[in-house]
């Protein structure tokens, strides 16, 4: 072992050089406190978003029309539990326990994605979450798959794969409605009108209002900026929606030949700030549902923790 302890300067130079070479940082590596802190925050928020994100769609499982839709939706919400599970694990490798993270969420100290604080009044909202919200999530997550922290990037590969299924089911569900009755088509368009702005906000504050951006980029935590991701998402999803006759609620949406991008109206980022802070239409409802599940499950976890494992023979 090195006789002399390396200085902070030496360590951070080596750390940044490793990231610049495109190598991943792994659990157990030296890392700046700020890097660890930012990652725990980001991965924790991401995990919480998956877990809270089960609620707005889960609400529609009892009402899903037909066997295939019912099965698909259960499988989809199940995947979200799975994603939350993978993400909490990635954060755990940075030294924060799942117990601590859940406590912070339930005490209202941790944040999660703004989009899950909006209501889902109709069946079409289930489809819109798949198409738009999961669509935007994939754009973000494909970037994270290239980010510098090994466990986070690895979790993303699997998650992106499953999100593609989520987008497909959302599109499939809505296309059926768009080509169905007038009333169904209107439901789909109304859902798009509801989800459009929240989804654009979901990709984060504009670059001009992202104080840590430079450092996060240098450390490979963010590979693209929020504005870049938002544009990427718009370019991807607008032609898809238009191809089936759905129109985003933006009078200033047009394809700009010069830039090769769709021009769009920025959402109201003050609303994003309010919703993130806890003042969205459904924040209270979501947290109450999570707290209830957590409290009602406590005796089960405590019992399992001390249960004697006493199977005499395999059950079957």
């Amino acid at each position: 072992m090195d006789v002399r302890e390396r200085t902070y300067e030496e360590k951070i130079t080596e750390f940044e050089a490793r990231i610049a070479r495109g190598e991943k940082i792994e659990p157990g590596d030296w890392m700046p406190d700020e890097y660890r802190k930012q990652l725990i925050r980001m991965i924790g928020q991401h995990a919480h978003s998956e877990i809270v994100g089960m609620l707005p769609e889960g609400k529609w499982i009892p009402h899903a029309p037909g066997f295939r839709r019912k099965l698909t939706l259960i499988a989809k919400v199940q995947d979200e539990a799975g994603h939350g599970q993978l993400l909490y694990r990635a954060a755990e490798t940075l030294g924060k326990s799942r117990e601590e993270m859940l406590e912070e969420l339930l005490e209202g100290k941790a944040k999660y994605s703004n989009v899950f604080n909006y209501p889902t009044p109709t069946w079409a909202d289930v489809g819109m979450i798949g198409w738009l919200v999961d669509g935007a999530a994939v754009v973000n997550q494909r970037m994270i798959a290239k980010s510098s922290y090994g466990p986070y990037a690895r979790a993303m590969k699997r998650i992106c794969f499953e999100e593609s299924f989520h987008i497909k089911q959302g599109q499939d569900l809505l296309i059926k409605m768009v080509y169905g009755t007038e009333e169904q088509k209107q439901m789909a368009q109304d859902a798009l009108n509801r989800w459009w702005h929240p989804t654009l906000m979901m990709l984060g504050m504009p670059d001009s209002d992202s104080p840590h951006l430079e450092k996060l980029k240098r450390w490979g935590v963010k590979v693209k900026t929020n504005d870049e991701l938002r544009q990427e998402f718009i370019d991807l999803v607008v032609p898809q929606l238009k191809s089936v006759g759905l129109n985003p609620p933006d009078d200033n949406l047009y394809y700009d030949e010069k830039t090769g991008h769709w021009h769009f109206t920025e959402p109201d980022y003050n609303e994003l700030k309010r919703v993130i802070k806890g003042d969205g239409p459904c924040n209270k409802e979501r947290m109450e549902a999570r707290r209830k599940a957590h409290e009602e499950g406590r005796w089960v976890r405590q019992a399992l923790a001390v249960a004697k494992h006493k199977r005499e023979a395999p059950a079957v």
Binding site: R89, E92, S97, R98, E99, E100, L102, E103, H294, R298, R301, Q302, L304, A305
Partner: peptide, 9 residues
């Protein structure tokens, strides 16, 4: 904090 999320495997 008296919660447990059980051991990790």
């Amino acid at each position: 904090m008296n919660d447990t999320q059980l051991p990790i495997w």
